[in-house]
Amino acid sequence: MADKLLEIKDLTTSFRIKDDYHAAVDNLSLTVNKNEVLAIVGESGCGKSALAFSIMGLHTRAKIEGDILFKDKNIAKMSSSELNKVRGKDIGMIFQDPLTSLNPLMQIEEQIGETLLLHNKDMSKTARQERVLDLLKKVGIPRAEYVMNQFPHELSGGMRQRVIIAMAIANKPELLIADEPTTALDVTIQSQILDLINKLKDEMDSGIVLITHDLGVVAEMADRVAVMYAGQIVEVADVKTLFAKPLHPYTRSLLNSVPNSDKEQDKLHVIQGIVPSLQNLPREGCRFSARIPWVDESAHEKHPELREVDPGHLVRCTCYKHFSFPDETKEEQHVLS
C-alpha cells in the first residue's frame, strides 16, 4: 500500500454569514499518498478552494473542525509559528488567480527569493539569486535574467502564473496544492507546466493535490480523482476507473459536458440549475437531487453516505444504480431558470 502523506479526517470548514456558520467543506475525509497526483474536480463554488485553503491554514475567519494529518502531524491544530515552518517548505501552494496573487510592489526576484529566504536561513544572497534564476528557467520563462528584476504588472497573466508556480516549488515541497494551476495558460504552456509538476513528483516523491475543472488535465495527470459537490466528496476512484466507469450522477454529468474530440456530438450535456450558495445548501438528505429532477424521488437515499463499491472506488449513496440521463427530447426543455 502506498505511503500516506496527507490524511484529512472529518474536515468541516464553515464561513460565518449573517451570524450563522455555513459549511463550505462538510465533513470531508481524504488521503493523499506520496508520489501521487490526486485531482479534485467539481463546478465552481463546490468548495475546492475552501478545502485547499483549509489545508494551508489560510482561512482567517472560518471555523475549522476535524484533523489534517501531514506526515502524522496534525497541521490543523498547529500554532501559526509551527505552521510557518511547514508552509512554503514542505507544503507549497499554487494559487488560482495569477493577476492578484503577486505583490505589486515587489520585484519577481524578491518574491520568489522570499520563499527561499524563509526556509533556508544560511543560503547566501548569490546562491538565492541563482536558484531564482534557475526556477524561472524551469517554469519556462524566457529572458529570465531580465524578468527577475521586473514587477508583476509588467508580465502577462501566463507569465505571472509561472512565477507563482516557481514560488510554490522553490523548496521542493513534499505536498503541492495546485489550485487551477493552468486555467490561465494556453495549451502549450499548460503542458509544459504539467510536465514540471510531474517532474517534481518523481524527483521528490511528492504528493500533488490538483484542483481543476478541466477534465482533460485530470485524464492526463491524475492517479486518483475525487469529485466534489457542494462541500462533499461524491466519488473517489483511480483515474482509469473514473473515466471508464463513472458511477455517481454528478460525475457522469460532468464527463458528459466536455466537448469530446472522439464523440461527434452537436449538443453538450448541461447540468440543470446551479451549485447552490452556502445558505441555500440542503443540509439534509441528498444535495444533488435538485439538479436531476427527472429521477424519481423514491430513488434517492435519505442519508447518502460515501461507500466503497470496489476496492478504492467510493461513491456516495446508491441512487446511481437507478440513474440514467433523460432522453434527448426531454433534455431540450432544460432551460436555465
Binding site: 495549451v187 502549450t188 499548460q190 485524464a219 492526463e220 474530440s261
Partner: peptide, 18 residues
C-alpha cells in the same frame, strides 16, 4: 502540430502514448 499535440486527451489510457 505542437498546439494540437498539447491538447490534453480525455482518455487516461492514452496518457503515455500521448
Amino acid at each position: 502540430k505542437r498546439l494540437v499535440a498539447a491538447i490534453p486527451d480525455i482518455d487516461p489510457n492514452k496518457r503515455d502514448e500521448k
